[in-house]
């Protein structure tokens, strides 16, 4: 029957997933069938996707990508690989969004930030001590290369202004607004909605402090504008920004990007 095994399509005589495992590997290998790691044998159907992963062995580069994406729902990877997503601001939201989008295999990422990594970033942003003093664009690109070397990463180390928005972001499917300051958020959202009418923007507002996780939601505010957050809890004197709620909000944004790349516009 027609199967995809370790990223390659072919015709196989096997009737069950473990028969494929025994054919291409050995009985200690991990077996992932259509995105799910199975412990017991399972009958195969036409067009199933099977990935056999030997433990502790570094695979060839061409096999690595299909193995990395084996836990995805089938046929999601092909769509994500064509995705082009820009991330404006690489702080608590943007750095975590970038890492998530790299893990799921979004083909092309644009990372934009003017700033360098400093100690006060480490309470919520995806950087390490070894990145202190480095531009965030470069520090994040280095991490992504270690997480998923199949992503094309463009970086621009500059401050986003009303004037450079069209030049920076045209050609991308989706922009993630991941700035810190409310005025900058509004500037980017207004400029994109006005000047880049075909692009969707996934923004964030309200994720400071340690209020309930469940206040953070994704809403579709306008045709091309999604907003994640609780809409109320801004960062201010006496209310800081901390990893859990910032990452919950980043997760909302990344999942909305994922949905949009798969053609789903509802939140």
């Amino acid at each position: 029957m027609r199967l995809t095994v370790n990223g390659r399509q072919g015709d196989f005589d096997c009737q069950t997933a473990f028969q494929i495992r025994d054919l291409v590997g050995d009985k200690n290998d991990l077996v992932i069938l259509n995105g799910y790691q199975i412990e017991e044998d399972y009958p195969l159907a036409e067009n199933d996707v099977v990935t056999i992963i030997p433990k502790g062995v570094l695979p060839q580069k061409e096999e690595l990508e299909s193995m990395m994406m084996a836990r995805h729902t089938p046929y999601v990877h092909e769509k994500l690989k064509k995705g082009k997503v820009a991330i404006a601001g690489l702080g608590g939201l943007g750095s975590n969004i970038a890492v998530m989008l790299a893990r799921i295999g979004v083909g092309q990422l644009l990372l934009v930030d003017f700033d360098i990594v400093e100690p006060s970033n480490l309470n919520r942003q995806s950087y390490y001590l070894s990145h202190l003093g480095m531009p965030k664009t470069i520090a994040l690109k280095q991490q992504i290369a270690q997480i998923n070397p199949f992503i094309r990463v463009e970086t621009v180390t500059t401050k986003v202004t009303e004037d450079n928005v069209p030049e920076l972001f045209s050609g991308y499917d989706i922009i993630c607004e991941a700035f810190d300051k409310a005025k900058e958020k509004a500037m980017l959202v207004n400029t994109v909605l006005e000047k880049l009418p075909g692009i969707k923007i996934v923004a964030a507002s309200g994720m400071a402090g340690y209020e309930s996780s469940n206040l953070i939601q994704t809403r579709r505010a306008m045709k091309n504008l999604y907003i994640c957050g609780d809409l109320e809890n801004g960062a201010k004197v006496g209310r800081g920004l901390m990893a859990p709620r910032v990452q919950i909000c980043a997760g909302h944004q990344a999942n909305m990007v994922l949905r949009l790349l798969l053609g789903i516009e509802e939140v």
């Binding site: 601001g89 810190d180 958020k185 994720m207 907003i227 809409l231 960062a235 201010k236 920004l241």
Partner: peptide, 10 residues
């Protein structure tokens, strides 16, 4: 009318 108001933090 749809009005979206942003608060800071990110």
């Amino acid at each position: 009318l749809e009005i979206v108001s942003f608060v800071g933090g990110g």
